[in-house]
Design a protein around this nucleic acid. Structure first.
Length: 855
RNA sequence: GCCGAUGUGGCGAAAUGGCAGACGCAACGGACUUAAAAUCCGUUUCCAUUAACAUGGAGUGCGGGUUCGAGUCCCGCCAUCGGUACCA
């Protein structure tokens, strides 16, 4: 097969300019204090979600967001901003470790190879990253500071008085370890017996391991936790000022899940207290304290600590059996299969504080230990789950809320209180307020807000991650000194899980032994750790003394806006976890005085997924993965970039189409041929049609309309319509006998952020013949449109009769409404249509239309 | 179940409440060519009427509503996709 002739010589142009940009460090962003730093230029920080460098390399989905940010970066530079546009690698992580387990290849080696491949691919697309700022989370120079930040968190606590993180030294209580933001707890983790390891939540799908599909069970283990729940309120409230999609804000709010309600204390019926038991009351959390009179039984989570004390002799065996049964259930069984309610009464009773009634206490696995107080008051008449449970076990159901219409039993909305002496007749909102006051006055409860958000399980039993800068001495943890950082993982030949749940680092006996009396922590941090603060390191990536220099941080992350990164683009898959974790770390560091602003990412945009040509998700399995390098080899990087943006709105999911790439490639070739032509020898030379001549009126209009449209569209990230406009621009000039050099230059400038190689080359060629402009197109200032050129003296307006289009006419711009109305009524078609009818109204919209209403 | 997004030609898509389908793909026709590719020009929502220029009607998932006028705003459905799931 002979190679098809290239529509224009992108295969020569693109490497040429990529090399030049590299040599000139064309996209270097100087920091304050550096010689070429210009304090008069405003800063603009444009960030991509950096990739995990997998073995498969990039597919065309990755560069979608990267292309969008690159266009904005190039555009903002031309608008006079100093743009920080960096790229790096989220280099710790499971796939490299799994690969190591299979092949014995050290993860550091595969990671290095994968990074090299990713970087080469990105460079071939012509992105304007400041490669001097490249970072990798797996390099000691980087993870040293990840460990340092962990120590900041470890050495802090959340002071509820000030609502801020503070150094642990300001805590006056007896046991600082009980309030640290990083703490150790025995918590249930995802234990996968077949893999012999603990899995992160994100590695568990439908109760089975992502790798291999083996069952996963909950098992309590000693784990490091981060106290993110202390920041729940702020993480919700401080979303308000951010320029994020509403859907993402909502997702985060729901994930954090604030519920307003009350804690109610139920006294345990005295005779029921067992020998040695001290529990006198049970705290429940409810969002419907107004239904207190309808609480006909209590349910505790099976793991609730009071269960042992409260269970009566007769019920011991049944309770033990039930707890055994629940404990052995996998997640899958407890959620998916176990929709059917189960539970067992423990024999004890409690007193409903509202009416003094004795109500039975049950345990059931539909009540979760991890939420609220791990105990509920069941109001079967007004809660679906309680109703189902009560019906199954024949427990009493009392209606206490009357809906405006319909059946009270099973009604969970707001209504009027009934059968509730203190509250009768009150609407739900008032009833809640009143009963809470009553509870508070009587010492039986208080107003309370609970969050769904759980503390962050921060340790992994893995090799390829940041080791904790912690040692254990006599069963107690203590921090390493900052001077001991970075703490590098030990070299290890055998990365396999131990099978016992003990981390692989435990195999490095010498490394683990810190001193005679102390041993190192052997857990490692999760992959999220490195990505929690990489945007900060980009501000000052080579700083050896601090995680980020104060001046650099202030410059790039400060400013007049509420937060630092001006534009952050990435996929929705990180809408919750990454963005929440990063905000949390940022707030801790902010509270401790290390940062200028409380929020990291001011403006967030999610790019939509690119599907395969068959409309399915791109995957090896379907064989529909497209490699950017293949596209670039055939059509060039500029066509690749433009097509990625021309496909449709950035946020939308859309399928790939090679035919579409071809179309965009034809457009770029037309741009090339506006300026170039082939001579007899088949060489491309500057076309003689390009002349220094004035523009015709309609050409001037086209030029200025395009400046306006392309500028507005880039600001709005509507790249597809910006490209459409440039296509129209090119079509306008394609058949013009002379191509005015002004118009050609203008087109190149507008197109430059999208197709930087092609436009750089043509700019250079034009400069050889018309040498009165900037030497390099990247030095050009972005143009401003002149609205005067967009004004017409005449305008075509639409004539409607009863809202239907009937005819058109041309009138003078801004013609008086009365004149337009008269002209419309004089129109023969209108006359025909309104014959015999009465004109009720004539609507005239200036320069748009006239609508005659008649019947 | 709950939350969110989306629904417009054969396809990707455009449209501050004011000419629905810009721009591109595909298809078809023409020019150039010995021929093809490439390039350039044109047609292309559907239905009906007409020899033809053309004319009429319908049309943005479905049903209502607001308005002189609705793809766009409001109410109620349906479908697809994504997230989440006993959170009291």
């Amino acid at each position: 097969m002979t190679e098809r002739r290239k529509p224009y010589p992108f295969d020569q142009i693109e490497p040429k300019w990529q090399t030049l940009w590299d040599e000139r460090c064309a996209f270097r962003a100087p920091n304050p204090g550096e010689p070429d730093f210009d304090p008069n230029r405003p800063k603009y920080y444009i960030l991509d979600m950096f990739p995990y460098p997998s073995g498969a390399g990039l597919h065309v989905g990755h560069p979608e967001g990267y292309t969008a940010t690159d266009i904005v970066a190039r555009y903002k530079r031309m608008r006079g901003f100093t743009v920080l546009h960096p790229m790096g690698w989220d280099a710790f992580g499971l796939p490299a470790e799994q690969y190591a387990i299979r092949t014995g290849q050290h993860p550091a080696i595969t990671t290095r190879e994968n990074i090299a491949k990713f970087k080469m691919q990105l460079k071939r697309i012509g992105f304007s990253y400041d490669w001097d700022r490249e970072i990798s989370t797996a390099e000691p120079d980087y993870f040293r500071w990840t460990q340092w930040i962990f120590l900041q968190i470890y050495n802090s606590w959340f002071n509820p008085e000030t609502n801020r993180a503070e150094p642990i030294s300001t805590y006056s209580g007896a046991d600082p370890d009980a309030v640290r933001l990083a703490y150790v707890a025995e918590v249930p983790v995802n234990w996968c017996p077949d893999l012999g390891t603990v899995l992160a939540n994100e590695e568990v799908i439908d109760g089975k391991s992502e790798v291999g599909g083996f069952p996963v069970v909950k098992r309590p283990m000693r784990q490091w936790m981060l106290r993110i729940t202390a920041f729940a309120r702020r993480l919700i409230d401080e979303l308000d000022g951010l320029d994020w999609p509403d859907g993402i804000k909502l997702l985060q709010r729901n994930w954090i899940g604030a519920s307003e309600g009350a804690v109610v204390r139920f006294a345990v019926a005295p005779a029921q207290l067992q020998a040695g038991g001290t529990a006198e009351e049970i705290e429940v959390f409810t969002t419907r304290p107004d239904t207190l009179y309808g609480a006909t039984y209590l349910v505790l989570a099976p793991e609730h600590p009071l269960v042992d004390q409260l269970t009566t002799q007769e019920q011991r065996d049944a309770v033990a059996a039930y707890r055994e049964q629940v404990g052995s259930k996998s997640d899958l069984e407890r959620t998916d299969l176990a929709k059917d309610k189960t539970g067992v009464a423990i024999g004890a009773f409690a007193i409903n504080p509202a009416n003094g009634e004795r109500v039975p206490i049950w345990i059931a696995d539909y009540v979760l230990m991890g939420y609220g107080t791990g105990a509920i008051m069941a109001v079967p008449a007004h809660d679906e789950r309680d109703l189902e449970f009560a019906r199954k076990f024949d427990l009493p159901i009392r209606e206490v809320v009357q809906p405006t219409e319909g059946e009270a039993i099973g009604f969970t909305g707001d209504g009027a209180a009934i059968n509730s002496p203190l509250l009768n007749g009150l609407a739900t909102a008032e009833a809640k307020t009143k009963i809470i006051s009553w509870l508070e006055d009587n010492g039986r409860g208080r107003r309370n807000i609970r969050f769904k958000l759980r503390d962050w399980l921060f340790s992994r039993q893995r090799y390829w991650g940041e080791p904790f800068p912690i040692v254990w001495r006599e069963g107690k943890h203590e921090a390493l000194a900052e001077s001991d950082l970075p703490l590098t993982p030990p070299p290890l030949d055998d990365f396999k899980p131990t099978g016992t749940g003990e981390p692989p680092l435990a195999k490095a006996r010498d490394w683990v032994r810190y001193s005679e009396a102390a041993t190192r922590e052997t857990n490692t941090m999760p992959q999220w750790a490195g990505s929690c603060w990489y945007y900060l390191r980009f501000c000052d990536p080579r700083n050896a003394d601090r995680f980020v220099g104060a001046e650099a941080e202030h410059h790039w992350m400060g400013g007049s806006q509420p937060a630092g990164v001006d534009l952050y683009v990435g996929g929705t898959e990180h809408a919750v976890l990454h963005l929440l974790y990063a905000r949390f770390w940022h707030k801790v560091l902010f509270d401790l005085g290390h940062l200028s602003k409380p929020e990291p990412f001011q403006r967030l945009v999610n790019q939509g997924m690119i599907l395969g040509e068959d409309g399915r998700k791109m995957s090896k399995r379907w064989g529909n993965v497209v490699d950017p390098l293949d596209v670039i080899a055939e059509y060039g990087a500029d066509a690749f970039r433009c097509y990625e943006m021309f496909m449709g709105p950035l946020e939308q999911m859309k399928p790939w189409s090679m035919k579409g790439v071809e179309g965009v490639s034809r457009f770029l070739a037309r741009v090339w041929r506006l300026v170039m032509e082939e001579n007899q020898a088949g060489e491309w030379v500057l076309s003689p049609a390009v002349q220094d001549v004035p523009l015709e009126k309609r050409q001037l209009k086209m030029m200025h309309a395009s400046i306006k449209k392309v500028s507005d569209d880039i600001e709005a990230l509507a790249f597809n319509t910006a490209i459409s406009q440039m296509m129209v621009y090119v079509n306008e000039f394609t058949n013009a006998p002379a191509k005015p050099v002004t118009a050609m230059r203008m087109l190149l400038v507008l197109l430059n952020p999208f197709a930087p190689h092609l436009t750089s080359e043509l700019w250079e060629i034009l400069n050889a013949r018309f040498p009165d402009a900037a030497r390099d197109i990247t030095d050009c200032a972005w143009p401003l449109h002149n609205p005067d050129y967009l004004i017409e003296d005449e305008v075509e307006i639409v004539i409607q009769v009863n809202g239907k289009l009937r005819d058109k006419m041309t009138v003078a711009i801004d013609a008086a409404d009365a004149d337009v109305e008269a002209a419309a009524l004089a129109n023969p078609k209108v006359g025909e249509l309104i014959a015999g009818k009465t004109i009720r109204k004539v609507v005239v919209v200036r320069n748009k239309l006239v609508n005659v209403v008649a019947n």
